[in-house]
């Protein structure tokens, strides 16, 4: 009676896909030739900057070095200053919290949106997908500008609508004025921007589940929730895990939206996330040695947090 738990879908991550068995080719040069273009492009665009960043993180590199004074090797001073600098840890914790919450909500809404797309009729699905496309296509600078406009203290639509509710006085409420509501607006903006990609990716996974499996479960009386938990989720899990990882990485590195929102709000450090903090250290105060050190620490912290998951991804990749 029980629905087959291991749906024979092509995309099962953990079990080798029944289709392609990679025969161990004669180890010709072909794979190396194939990855050469990508390697060259990466080296040309990122090679020098990465080396420069690693070297600079061990130097005292300020504006005078930018104007020709030879930089001074200072060993781990930059990293030490960082560790003892309370503000860095505050910004790091704030950014991690922000990216976990934003990424989680994005993916949850994305999954629900995908399931919804799968459940509704063709025309309604098209309407939903077109509106997602419009939202996804809107450039970051334009979307952030509009959100600042919507949440504006005096002329914003949000305050106007909330004010219309009897008993609610939101007149002149300064959304960007205190950290909590500032990050709420930032999170809503980034979720709004990211859901389209997530929902399309998950929807793609859903259409893989063969119709028979879903009908079989329904006939067996499995409720919507059981069907979701026992069939849809396991099926979509591989897409889900990759999309969640990417969303976490992107939301931890968010910069443009926060800069523009801060321009409209407060210049104080209490509103910084890692992106604006690094830019402030580097450009604004001209301490490029410190900014490089922070960037490397952020890379290591991101890797440390996602290592368990990344290793599993690599292992599965090997198994294929």
């Amino acid at each position: 009676m029980s629905a087959p738990t291991r749906t024979p879908a092509r995309a099962r991550m953990s079990s080798p896909a029944p289709g392609p068995r990679i025969q161990p080719r004669r180890t010709t040069g072909v794979p190396y030739v194939l990855i050469v273009p990508a390697l060259i492009a990466l080296l040309l665009g990122l090679g020098y900057p990465l080396i420069w960043q690693i070297v600079t993180s061990f130097q005292k590199y300020g504006l005078s070095q930018q104007f020709g004074k030879p930089p001074e090797f200072v060993g781990f001073d930059n990293f030490a200053n960082l560790v003892w600098d309370g503000e860095f840890w505050a910004v790091l914790v704030r950014s991690l919290l922000f990216c976990v919450v934003t990424a989680a909500v994005t993916v949850v809404i994305g999954v629900l949106m995908a399931v919804l797309m799968n459940a509704v009729g063709r025309t309604v699905r098209l309407i939903l997908q077109i509106s997602m496309l419009f939202a996804w296509a809107m450039p970051v600078a334009a979307a952030t500008t509009v959100f600042i406009w919507l949440f504006d203290r005096r002329r914003g639509v949000v305050n106007y609508l909330l004010d219309a509710i009897p008993g609610v006085d939101m007149n002149r409420y300064d959304w960007l004025g205190n950290p909590l509501t500032f990050f709420f607006v930032a999170s809503v903006l980034i979720i709004w921007m990211s859901v389209p990609f997530v929902s399309f990716a998950i929807y793609a996974g859903l259409t893989q589940i063969s119709e028979e499996v879903m009908e079989a479960a329904q006939i067996d009386g499995a409720g919507a929730w059981q069907r979701f938990r026992r069939i849809i989720l396991p099926m979509v899990r591989p897409v889900l895990s990759i999309v969640l990882l990417l969303q976490l990485i992107w939301d931890l590195r968010v910069f443009a939206q926060i800069t523009l929102l801060k321009d409209a709000g407060s210049k104080s450090g209490d509103f910084d996330l890692l992106g604006t903090y690094i830019y402030k250290l580097g450009t604004a105060t001209g301490d490029f040695g410190m900014a490089s050190a922070v960037s490397i620490v952020v890379l290591l912290v991101t890797l440390a947090i996602s290592w368990v998951y990344v290793r599993e991804l690599i292992k599965e990749d090997e198994a294929q």
């Binding site: 210049k267 450090g269 209490d270 402030k280 604004a284 105060t285 001209g286 301490d287």
Partner: peptide, 16 residues
Amino acid sequence: GWAGVEGSGLLEEFFG
């Protein structure tokens, strides 16, 4: 280092 002080936003933070 005054350009750095201005860029850091410390004065906005303090006066706020």
